[in-house]
Structures are given as C-alpha cells and as structure tokens.
Computed example of a mutant assay.
Amino acid sequence: MTYDAEKIVPYSDSESKGAQVERMFDSIAGNYDILNRTMSMGIDISWRKKGLSMLKKLNPQTILDIATGTGDLAIQAYDTLKPQSILGIDISEGMIEVGRKKAAKAGLSDKISFAKEDCMALSFSDNSFDAAMVAFGVRNFEDLDKGLKEILRVLKPGGQLMILELTVPAHFPMKQGYWLYTNLFIPTIGRIISKDKTAYSYLPKSIQAFIQGKDMINTLLKNGFTEASYKTYTMGTCSMYLASK
C-alpha cells in the first residue's frame, strides 16, 4: 500500500524519498534545533516527556531511537528512563553528528550512541531492543509498512514502540489556525533561518498528508503490532501512538 505522505518529497521525483530526506536534513542540520524550538515554541519538550512516560512501566534497558535527528528524544529518554543504553539512528549523518556533540556535552556518550541506519533495512538482529521510539520522523519514512515491519523485527517479544507525530487538528478553530501556522508561519521562519527554503515547505505538506488517529492504529496492527492505542496533545496538534510486539 502507498500512503499519501510517501508521495510528498522535498525536491523532485527524480530520486527516492529516502535520498531526498537525507539530503534535506543534512542541509538543515546546523540550524535544526533553533528552528525546531522557534516553530514549536518549546511545546515539543512536553510532548516528548508525555510520550516517554508511557514507556516507564516497561522499564526498558535497551532502546532504539529511530529518526533520532539531533538526539533530543534520546537525551530526554535517558533522563526519564535511565536505561542501560540508547542507540539513536538516522539516515542523515549531519543530524547525528550534532546529536553526538550534544550527548558528549551532556556527559552521556557512554550511554547514548549514534549510527547511520536506514529503517527500511536495519542492520540489527531480531529481538535486539526492549523498546523503540520515533519522534516526528515516521512521516518521513520512504515506505511506512516496510519501516514498521523492520521495527517490529528488532523489538524483543513484549517490547513496545512509542511514536510521536505532528497531526492536523480536526475541529474549528484550531484546524483553521493550524493551517495558517503550518502554511505561512513555518515556511516563513524556515526561509529566514535556514539556507534550505524547500525543507520548510516540505515539512508542513508531509504533516498534512500523513495518516493519523485510527488509520495509524490500523496500520500498526496490520504490520504485526498488538495493543495499539493513541492519545492526542495540545488540541490535536500532536499524537502519541503506543504499540507492543
């Protein structure tokens, strides 16, 4: 099955979505954190905290952070969950290099490591991790079904996947306000701060095209996960999905 978000690409149809997303994030890696904080007004920190709290009962000791970006979720996960180890993976070497520096600055290089990996074909053995998590990156998957199946494969039996993703509010007036925010504010701020103007036109489009709510739950179940559930935060602008192997 092809999802609408898989058809949304940053640049052109001449190369794969994965290659374009890698190039895009390499381009904006240096400015990504300041752009992210500016555009979310810092609310993303509370979303991560709420999502991570859902993994506390599991007490995971080995965690895979997929589409880790600059490592924000990995660092916050260590502070919240105190696991033995966290591995942050991303297709963008530029992003994870920023993440390595941030983990080192926090004194966590022995607890948080980073590797360049494509979640369409992970290099890890079956049943390797107690938990997996993706914050604001699952909509960038080149093939959502394939990516979810790979995550399921590397999770241990009983392991959990926690996903945070930006979503479109369903009701007035937040729905209309969100449209203005994503279609006017985000691209404008992106053009001012980032050298890659296209990136911050792509990101809102990818949010609007991505499945959410019950459709995402059904996709998780279809790809082998169980006990899938979701919650929404900040009037529907962010959704948290939790599922088990």
Score class of each variant (00 low, 15 high):
203 L>A: 06
226 T>D: 09
217 I>C: 01
174 M>L: 11
208 Q>C: 09
178 Y>K: 05
232 T>M: 14
209 A>S: 10
198 T>C: 10
209 A>V: 07
224 G>V: 09
217 I>W: 01
219 T>G: 06
238 C>M: 10
215 D>N: 13
193 I>W: 09
182 T>K: 13
204 P>Q: 04
232 T>N: 09
237 T>A: 12
188 T>V: 10
193 I>Q: 00
198 T>K: 11
186 I>G: 02
229 S>Y: 09
196 D>T: 02
220 L>C: 02
180 L>E: 14
228 A>V: 05
211 I>H: 09
231 K>R: 10
200 Y>R: 03
211 I>N: 06
221 L>F: 14
227 E>H: 13
236 G>E: 04
218 N>K: 11
237 T>N: 00
219 T>A: 14
228 A>P: 00
175 K>M: 12
228 A>L: 04
201 S>A: 12
187 P>C: 03
222 K>C: 12
201 S>I: 11
209 A>D: 05
196 D>M: 02
176 Q>W: 11
210 F>L: 05
232 T>F: 08
200 Y>M: 07
202 Y>M: 03
201 S>N: 12
234 T>Y: 13
198 T>Q: 14
196 D>A: 06
236 G>A: 02
219 T>Q: 06
225 F>L: 05
184 L>V: 10
215 D>K: 12
188 T>L: 12
213 G>W: 02
218 N>I: 13
235 M>Y: 15
190 G>C: 03
220 L>H: 00
237 T>F: 02
190 G>E: 03
193 I>L: 13
185 F>L: 08
180 L>F: 09
226 T>P: 12
234 T>K: 07
192 I>K: 12
194 S>P: 00
235 M>R: 12
180 L>K: 15
215 D>W: 13
178 Y>P: 05
218 N>W: 15
207 I>S: 05
210 F>A: 15
178 Y>D: 06
238 C>E: 01
207 I>M: 10
202 Y>A: 00
178 Y>W: 13
211 I>V: 15
200 Y>A: 07
186 I>M: 04
197 K>I: 08
204 P>V: 03
228 A>R: 00
182 T>L: 04
205 K>A: 09
186 I>T: 01
193 I>A: 01
176 Q>I: 15
179 W>A: 05
238 C>P: 07
198 T>Y: 06
211 I>C: 06
176 Q>G: 14
222 K>V: 07
230 Y>L: 00
183 N>C: 13
225 F>P: 03
208 Q>M: 09
178 Y>S: 06
